[in-house]
Amino acid sequence: MSINAKAAPVSFRNVTKIYGKDVVAVDNINLEIEAGKLVTLLGPSGCGKTTTLRMIAGLEIASKGSIHIGDQDVTLLPATDRDVSMVFQSYALFPHMTVMENVSYGLTFSGFDKSETRDRAQQGLDLVGLKGFGDRLPSELSGGQQQRVAVARALVLEPQVLLFDEPLSNLDAKLRRQVREDIRDIQQDLGLTVVYVTHDQEEALAVSDEIVVMRNAGIAQVGAPRELYDAPADKFVADFIGEANIIPCDIIDVKGDTAHIAIGTLKHQLSARDMMPGPANLAVRPTRFKLGAAGGVPMKVEKATYVGSRMEYTLAAHFGTVFVVSEDVDGPLAIGDTVMVGLDRIGPVLLAVD
């Protein structure tokens, strides 16, 4: 027996979810998730990402609009009639059942005989690296191993869509990195359609083909990880996807697709992004500053922290403070030093003023 992906696309068409009379959890969203892709719903608490995931699963029913999995309209179908599997934050393993029994559980309701059920469950354990663990109880496994059991239990059902709800939140930092790599490897090897919910930006950047950034029950921006990191649509996305310093600037002029800007005495040019001369904001990642740059902005070191592979600085300028990262750990700046700070040629991004 082999587990073959029946990957299907997911489509949200003008979907709204309202609780009670007027609590809007998801507000008229349109979203296309390609078959065989891992798409992450990312955003702060209360933005609507978990409700969106639960509507795919059938654990919540849309108030308006329609949801399609493949060619089927599943908007009103109960969870039991949808070809999806979900891996929960809590793993939801049965403590009194062995690992093999946990992985086999869903298969016992799918019409397979005992032999095929066991074969499928064993292959599921092999896929997640738990060969030989079938006779153990969940309590005898580490947190990362328990998470893999939950993934195996979902995989053996051969779902059209596999859903993850904050799957790594109960793991420590080192284990989180390992398990997210495992999930990504399995998804790519089997060509699964995966929808993944997290509030962790680094996790989203690491695992995703595409990220859906959500805010206030709606979608702020959709794009590949590098696209969102390098070209955020607005201040919220810039600050939420990785860390960004938002600096006021003036667009002096625009020639073609290039804007010439000024921050005090500092002059710089970059993509205009269809903006016109006048006040604007500049989003600058902590790694995109140039310390000791001629013609830069004078800044005073307020904090200097050594974190092993880099120095982290809080610098004060005439417009406020910025957070700057430098790989120069051998010649660090000291608190109270004044340094001229410039910008990397690539990296800073113009944003409209709110």
Results as ranks from 00 to 15, higher is better:
290 K>H: 09
14 N>G: 03
91 Y>C: 05
328 D>M: 06
236 F>A: 15
250 D>M: 09
183 I>V: 12
316 A>K: 15
36 G>F: 01
270 L>N: 03
209 D>W: 09
184 R>M: 07
76 L>T: 02
334 A>T: 10
303 K>C: 10
322 V>I: 13
82 R>W: 05
208 S>H: 03
45 S>L: 09
317 A>E: 13
244 A>Q: 02
233 A>F: 00
204 A>N: 09
92 A>C: 05
151 V>T: 12
261 I>N: 12
235 K>D: 14
254 V>P: 08
328 D>E: 05
165 D>W: 12
340 M>S: 15
159 P>N: 13
48 G>I: 01
153 R>K: 07
269 Q>Y: 03
99 V>D: 10
315 L>F: 03
231 A>W: 06
34 E>H: 07
309 S>T: 12
236 F>T: 15
12 F>C: 00
285 R>I: 02
216 N>H: 11
56 I>V: 08
141 L>W: 01
134 G>N: 05
256 G>H: 07
313 Y>C: 05
153 R>I: 14
161 V>R: 05
176 R>I: 05
16 T>M: 00
123 Q>A: 09
341 V>M: 14
294 A>G: 15
267 K>Q: 13
63 S>N: 11
115 S>Q: 15
40 T>H: 12
230 D>S: 13
334 A>F: 00
85 S>F: 01
331 G>N: 14
343 L>M: 07
293 A>S: 15
324 V>F: 02
